[in-house]
Amino acid sequence: MTADFLFDRPRKPAGLFGKSFSIALLLAGYSALCWLAFSESLRNWEKVWGYRETFWNGWLTTVQISAAALILSSLIGGATALARRSSFLPLRYTAIAYVETVRGLPLMVLVLFGFYGVANALGWQDRVSAGIVILSLFSGAYIAEMIRSGIESVGRSQWDSARAIGLTPTQTYRFVVFPQVLRQTLPPLAGQFSSLIKDSSLLYIIGIPELTFAANQVNSATYSTFESFVPLGICYLLLTLPVSLWTKRLEKKTRYET
């Protein structure tokens, strides 16, 4: 008996029986695990139900923050990726320092320093907008690296061809480089967006009433930890699973040979 089955690619699609059997097995295992973990503890739903509005508001805030940070971090990522390729040295070095600092620090440190340090010193009191900016700066550093590697994966012959037909540098980026970068980076980008949604949970430490903050609040009011955090997990999955499925579809759609 060898372990080949671990590495073999399937030669033909699985049959209906094999599929349903595997799924049933998986669900059974999953349910057993949940039963073990929660059967004794998930009993206090009445109290938590009273706080459903808190959850709803927290979830809305999380969706809003994530959506805003998604747009802002894409802009920051794109600008930084270009700055990292700039021939103007101070700009390039600033971009490198920014990316390396942010990627080297835990998000919690960034959130605390960013809000209580920088934002306070600037007199920036609005927690939600400050939180969006901090989260965008964090995520933007990763996106910048994805876009940069996307730009670098566009071959030299493509730049040569673009120059040879007389395109300006701006036209080259617009018509030749960016469309290819977009196709290359869409899948990792979508993965980053799903991280961003989860990362927004750390903003509770500066008191933004988002989803995790809400769950904490319900927990301390009802002393029902699992009854507060199981819905929390489900709420995040409701946001991240669609993004993940969308990523899979994109990967299939954008595959093309060069």
């Binding site: 071959g155 012959s157 493509q158 061809s161 040879a164 007389g166 290819q180 093309y256």
Partner: peptide, 28 residues
Amino acid sequence: RAHRQKLGVVFQAYNLFPHLTALQNIRL
């Protein structure tokens, strides 16, 4: 650039832009 616009160049390979059709490549 003005000089390059007046002539046609063909390299060994990968002349075409892979995200565009043959027609779009010529139209660009």
